[in-house]
Amino acid sequence: MAEEPATIGDPVLRLSDVGKGFHGTTVLDGVSLDVPQGQFVALTGPSGAGKSTLLRLVNGMHLPDSGTVHTLGENPAACSRSRLRALRARVGFVFQQFGLVGRLSALENVLMGSLATLRLPRYGVMSYPRALRIRAVEHLDRVGLADRRFQRCDTLSGGQQQRVAVARTLLQSPELILADEPVASLDPAASALVLETLKRISVEDGISVVCSLHQIQLALATADRVVALRGGRLVLDEPAAGLTAERLREVYETAGTRDAQAGARDAQAGARDG
């Protein structure tokens, strides 16, 4: 495989004028974005703005209708099956709903991150090489869950499960981590811990992270750079340092009429409930 030597400053991710639609609805419309190595990018925007779609374009789980995607020097749309698999092995993906197998232990779920480097199907912790097991435990330790290694995942709390998922991603030795609303189903304390873990990994290992987030405060506190999508278009792209919560909130509040109506309905519902 032709590994392109990534020079410092070379973008690990480059989207050029990307468009994508499903069943006639446009989800992404002319989005361009460069992410350099080691940067933590928070991807914000209202529900349905295209955040999840954008992340899935990056690792080739969706393919763009127009424009090009370059991930770690590869174009997922032009990759063969095996090349795409090799690319995905280099890109970590963290899901909102964790994507863990609940009946299996934390350790086995982490070990699954190494599947791309193994040839045969695996079932059971002992079917993985010892060296991988040691590394998996180290990564569990890194997310603070080494003592839970043999606990069934469906008995862990939400925050712990998401950290197991992060550890699984780490076992891939990713060069880029994509996180799709990783904290949307977690309570505030667990959210902060998961994001802190991701941030620490990004800083310590120099890995770029693109993380879609709903919570404005968390985005500003964690990210190096904030990107906002609305209606499939990129409407804001600034360093987090100079950005205020008010300015970012405008992205949500000046949302299109449909979204505004939805917001109003939510507010009414809230008032009723309260």
């Binding site: 698999r85 690319l87 197998v101 009946r103 699954m112 599947l115 791309a116 199907p121 695996r122 699984r168």
Partner: peptide, 21 residues
Amino acid sequence: EALTSVGARRWQAFAAGIWPQ
């Protein structure tokens, strides 16, 4: 889906992601 994004082969994704469930 998560294992596919890890880069697992079809059989690996089945053995690790579907079979245990």
